[in-house]
Amino acid sequence: MFSALAFKVFQESIDTYHIKDDVDQEFTNPYAKDMVEHLLYRKNWIDTVQWHYEDIIRDPAIEPNAALTLKRKIDASNQDRTDLVEYIDSYFLQKYQSVQVNDSATINTESPAWALDRLSILALKIYHMQEEVDRTDASQEHIEKCSAKLAVLLEQKKDLSTAIDQLLTDIETGNKYMKVYKQMKMYNDDELNPVLRGQKG
Score class of each variant (00 low, 15 high):
M1V: 14
S3N: 03
S3T: 01
L5P: 04
A6Y: 01
D15K: 12
D15P: 08
K20N: 07
D21V: 09
D24Y: 15
F27M: 10
N29E: 05
P30G: 00
A32H: 02
M35A: 14
V36K: 15
L39F: 08
K43P: 03
K43Y: 10
K43D: 04
N44G: 07
W45H: 07
I46H: 00
I46A: 01
V49K: 02
Q50Y: 00
Q50E: 11
W51C: 02
Y53N: 03
E54T: 12
E54N: 14
I56D: 05
I57H: 07
I57K: 07
I57M: 03
P60M: 05
A61T: 14
I62H: 06
E63I: 09
N65C: 09
N65A: 15
L70E: 07
K71H: 11
R72V: 05
D75G: 12
D75A: 11
D80G: 09
T82C: 00
Y87I: 12
F92G: 01
F92R: 00
K95L: 06
K95Q: 12
Y96V: 05
Y96Q: 01
Q97G: 15
Q100G: 10
V101D: 06
D103P: 11
S104N: 11
S104L: 03
S104I: 07
T106D: 11
T106I: 09
E110D: 07
L116M: 05
D117L: 08
D117G: 09
M129F: 12
E132S: 15
E132C: 13
T136A: 08
A138S: 12
H142K: 14
E144W: 03
K149D: 10
K149G: 14
A151H: 03
L153S: 02
E155F: 12
L160E: 04
S161N: 01
S161P: 02
A163R: 12
I164R: 02
D165N: 08
L167Q: 06
L168Q: 01
T169V: 10
T169N: 14
I171V: 06
E172W: 08
N175K: 14
K176E: 01
M178S: 00
K179H: 14
K182E: 13
K182V: 15
Q183F: 00
K185M: 15
Y187N: 14
N193C: 10
P194C: 06
V195I: 12
L196G: 05
L196M: 07
R197S: 06
G198F: 13
K200N: 02
